[in-house]
Amino acid sequence: MESFTVRRAKTSDVKSIRNLVRPLAEDRVLLEKEAVAYYENLQEFFVAEDAEGNVIGCGGLHVMWEDIAEVRTLASDAAWRGHGVGHRLLAKLLNEARELGVSRVFCLTFEVDFFLRNGFTVMAEQSAVDPEVYSELLRSTDEGVAEFLDLARVKPNTLGNTRMITHL
């Protein structure tokens, strides 16, 4: 496989990000989002691109509170799986979390083995935040935050994935 680079996402990448996510959403591995959601959260995203400038992977880091963030929409092109794209994107997102001062990063995933290999553990206790922070997070309108908090209103949309966390 050729080499690839990881960089911050640009508005021109949204179509490619959606094309990466679509087949994974059809397989119920990721949730598909409207284009507007990607534009609104673009500053959270990084992409991997091959030597020809094709987007071959993506991932986002969503800060939820002072000390916790979520890895979101980590995906790679099927032809590039097993070539380090996801690993490099995740490393970039974790480095970004460190730079922002976040000490814990979680994800909701079906790719348990991948995240285990990258330092995550399955959350034994599903409440990763204390009650005071929990009550503050309840005010968020973000669906990912609601899913993290395991709120009943998102149950119909839950994919049945595993909550995992790493400490930086």
Rank of each mutant, 00 (worst) to 15 (best):
D77F: 02
A124C: 05
G82D: 04
Q126R: 13
K155Q: 15
D142A: 01
L42N: 11
I56Y: 02
Y38N: 06
R104Q: 06
R28N: 13
A37Y: 12
R88C: 08
R117M: 13
E2W: 01
I165K: 03
E143C: 03
K15P: 07
G57S: 07
V21F: 11
N95S: 09
G59V: 11
D142P: 05
A79K: 06
C107Y: 03
E32P: 12
A146T: 01
H167V: 12
L20M: 06
L31I: 14
V55W: 03
G101S: 09
L137H: 09
E147N: 07
W80D: 04
Q43F: 03
K92A: 07
V154Y: 13
A69G: 14
F115E: 11
R22V: 13
Y134C: 13
L93Y: 09
Y38K: 10
G101C: 12
L74K: 07
G119I: 04
S140E: 01
T141M: 02
F4D: 00
Y39E: 14
S127G: 01
L42V: 11
H83T: 02
H62E: 03
G59C: 06
L151E: 14
F45I: 03
N19L: 04
N19F: 02
G144M: 08
L31Q: 15
E132K: 15
L116F: 09
S16I: 00
G82A: 07
N19A: 14
E111R: 08
S3Q: 13
E49S: 12
F46S: 12
F46M: 06
S140D: 06
F114K: 11
W65V: 06
N161H: 14
W80R: 07
G84P: 03
G144T: 07
D27T: 03
S12L: 10
I68L: 15
F120C: 10
R28P: 00
G84D: 02
